[in-house]
């Protein structure tokens, strides 16, 4: 088990190094000089040269690569944003937690709704609940997230005024008491989290239902019943544990897509996260920021793969021992 973990973690670290190298060379190969967009053509060439030196752009590629790797990995120093004239690290530090907050809640919604209703649908196969859930899942699944987001905003924020129309907190957030602050944040989270999580929940539900149905017809489920275990134990222990195996992989591997989804959702709900940061940086040719966000989304992919492997191995002894 331990050697399995260590191997997976080493592999993940290696992947991150490779990713970093890849990002570096892609940016190197991109046409144009990063300073082009910012340097005024009438600017003193000496000043431009000074800037190039300041950003290390005058050094040989290998040198740039090494120092870049070092600052990225050891100092989390992603350079300075050309557009915002601030350390990229600070920009990321401001935006990343917001995106993680959004994505984590959405993931929770996805897993709880998807797995819970998936079990329910399978156990009640063919009955009204099952049909209702399956139709509902199909509907949700076929609605684009941005459209759903805008509609919910229109209805709940603009028409009914039950929920705020975007942002993470109200303007008077800081002046509120603790409970009121929590409630304020929760109200701001509800719509974006719902929109971000519900599509995945529908997919998870269908996957979970299918897996559960397959598992429920297995010999060991019949044997578990023959032992006189309660139906609850049969379903929630014997069947669920097996049915979860493929779902874990599905969910973990969909984390990158979920993070990708935040780009649209952050835009619709004016959420100050990584998505917003990335979009702005791309349109402004803000290379250091683009590099940092590209790198971080790659890290997210690697980490979710690692999580998938670890969770899977915890759930399935066959994987655990085969290594």
């Amino acid at each position: 088990m331990l050697s399995f973990l260590i191997r997976r973690i080493l592999l993940a670290a290696l992947l991150i190094l490779a990713l970093l190298t890849f990002v570096f060379f892609v940016i190197q190969l991109a046409p144009g000089d990063p300073l082009q967009g910012y340097a005024d053509p009438e600017m003193d060439p000496q000043l431009v040269e000074q800037l190039r030196m300041q950003f290390g752009l005058d050094q040989p590629v290998a040198q740039q690569y090494l120092s870049w790797m070092r600052s990225f990995l050891l100092e989390f120093d992603f350079g300075i944003s050309l557009a915002k004239r601030r350390a990229v690290r600070d920009l990321v530090a401001g935006a990343l937690p917001n995106t993680i907050r959004l994505a984590a809640w959405a993931l929770l919604v996805r897993v709880l709704l998807g797995v819970g209703f998936g079990i329910l649908a399978a156990v009640r196969r063919g009955r009204a609940v099952d049909v209702g859930l399956s139709v509902g899942a199909l509907l949700v699944y076929s609605v684009p997230a941005f459209w759903l987001g805008v509609m919910l905003l229109l209805v709940f924020a603009l028409q009914l005024k039950w929920l705020p129309p975007g942002q993470m907190v109200s303007l008077d957030h800081a002046s509120l008491g603790f409970a009121a602050r929590v409630w304020d944040s929760a109200r701001h989270l509800m719509l974006p989290v719902f929109v971000l999580g519900i599509g995945g929940a529908a997919a998870t539900l269908r996957f979970m239902r299918a897996g559960m149905l397959e598992v429920l017809s297995q010999d060991y489920v019949r044997a578990a019943r023959a032992k006189g275990l309660t139906e609850r134990t049969v379903i929630l222990k014997h069947a669920l544990r097996n049915a979860l195996l493929p779902v874990v992989t599905l969910v973990a591997l969909s984390i990158p897509a979920l993070i990708g989804g935040t780009v649209v959702i952050e835009h619709v709900f004016s959420w100050p996260g990584m998505g917003k940061l990335t979009i702005e940086a791309i349109s402004q040719r803000d290379y250091p920021v683009v590099m940092a966000t590209t790198f971080l989304s790659g890290v997210a992919v690697v980490i979710s793969n690692l999580l998938a492997d670890i969770t899977y191995s915890l759930l399935d002894p066959r994987v655990r021992l085969e290594s």
Partner: peptide, 19 residues
Amino acid sequence: RGREIAMVFQEPASALNPV
């Protein structure tokens, strides 16, 4: 079941839960 009447099956390997 399992207390007064117990049962064993034809395919022992698949009657045990793998996890």
